[in-house]
Write a protein that binds this DNA or RNA. Structure first.
Lengths: 216, 216
DNA sequence: ACCTGAACACCGTTCAAGT
DNA sequence: ACCTGAACACCGTTCAAGT
């Protein structure tokens, strides 16, 4: 048993994630991450060149935890499952999600996902360009939705958000009529409805383009 | 002429925005913002209780700069114009956009926009709930898209982003076949297509629900 | 090979002293 | 009323010294 603790990259990243989940991203200082493992701040520099590299390590670990969707047959389910994972990550680590977006490491994992997706898309009658537009529109929606959800939607009660019931009465009749709606939205259902809505639009667009192609 | 510079809240906020635009958000220290105006760091505490309040002031000023869309007749144009403004803000102040999202002040301005929007929506045959789902799905898309655009989409060349051409050859045939696409996407056209796609889905959904309503 | 004490630059913030 | 010097706690980072 060594008198001084000995630590690994993986332990540091895990400790940092736990710390940020418990105390917020503001608690992510070298000293506090070290203390989590019984070690001084300077020890971390034996494992990461600087704090930025540690943050990259955190982002990478979180994204790697998502993995590739299983059941590769259908492009719609494949993509929906991947985007549900994005939302799940945001909900599990709300404090770290913006960091993941910021430092989204240029991952081979992401490229592998898109490669698999494009293969599935081609069989479904989409051109490569249509497939990538679909990917970018849908993932923009999922990222934006997840972000809105963790920081609070407009007019939602709670945290520091202005809620529908706090508005000056009289001036906002439309909103006030819906106050109870804002307090009881089912966000999972809304997210799924959003995915389906965008997918319906994409498929309608594909079909229309294919129709005009055949009729020319 | 006083020997010591005298400054206002507005000047401080403007100086901070200019500084962040030029040197990045990392340059937003009390000392540097002060220096921008020929003043010491401590002077800022006469105008803002702390740095967080200054950042809130920045977010508020940027959002206020957007304003309410003109030409209120049509809910679709109204909402599209508002969301184009979000994207415009992101492109004009890429370094500050995440901060705006984070500190989105609980603005009366936002409530007024939603109030006006709901009024327009009702006339178009949407229920209040449908209207808010539409709002949240579309604004999630716009926020996510703007964010992706400023930090780089997947497989896009540039910055620190892994580009399609940098991937190990052979392993990613689908992506490599589209390398030239990734280098020449028209992001404005893609954003507009995304808006129209989601709107088409929303209207199809409304019509379907109304149809089943009448046939019951 | 990897943890640590001492040290430095930089940062947010307080407060009493100036004008 | 509002700017400033001095001071403090906290932070990232370096480096030589330990084991």
């Amino acid at each position: 048993m060594p008198r001084r603790a000995r630590i690994s990259r993986e332990q540091i990243v895990a400790a940092a994630i736990g710390l940020a989940d418990r105390e917020g991203i503001g608690a992510l200082t070298m000293a506090k991450v070290g203390a989590e493992l019984g070690v001084e701040a300077m020890s971390l520099y034996n494992h990461f060149p600087n704090k930025g590299a540690l943050l990259d390590g955190i982002a990478e670990a979180l994204v790697a935890g998502i993995g590739m969707p299983e059941g590769h047959e259908d492009w719609e389910d494949f993509l929906k499952e991947a985007l549900r994972s994005v939302r799940r990550l945001a909900r599990e680590h709300p404090g770290l999600f913006p960091l993941v977006l910021d430092r989204a490491p240029d991952l081979l994992a992401e490229a592998r996902l898109i490669e698999a997706y494009l293969g599935l898309q081609r069989e479904a009658g989409f051109s490569g360009e249509q497939a990538m537009v679909a990917f970018q529109v849908l993932s923009s929606f999922a990222i934006g939705y997840a972000l809105s959800e963790i920081r609070g939607f407009a007019l939602q009660p709670g945290r520091s958000r202005l809620s529908a019931r706090e508005l000056p009465p009289g001036e906002f009749p439309e909103i006030q009529a819906m106050a109870s709606y804002f307090e009881s939205v089912d966000r999972t259902a809304e997210f799924e409805a959003g995915l389906d809505l965008v997918l319906a639009g994409l498929k309608a667009d594909r079909d229309e383009r294919n129709r005009s192609w055949f009729s020319n």
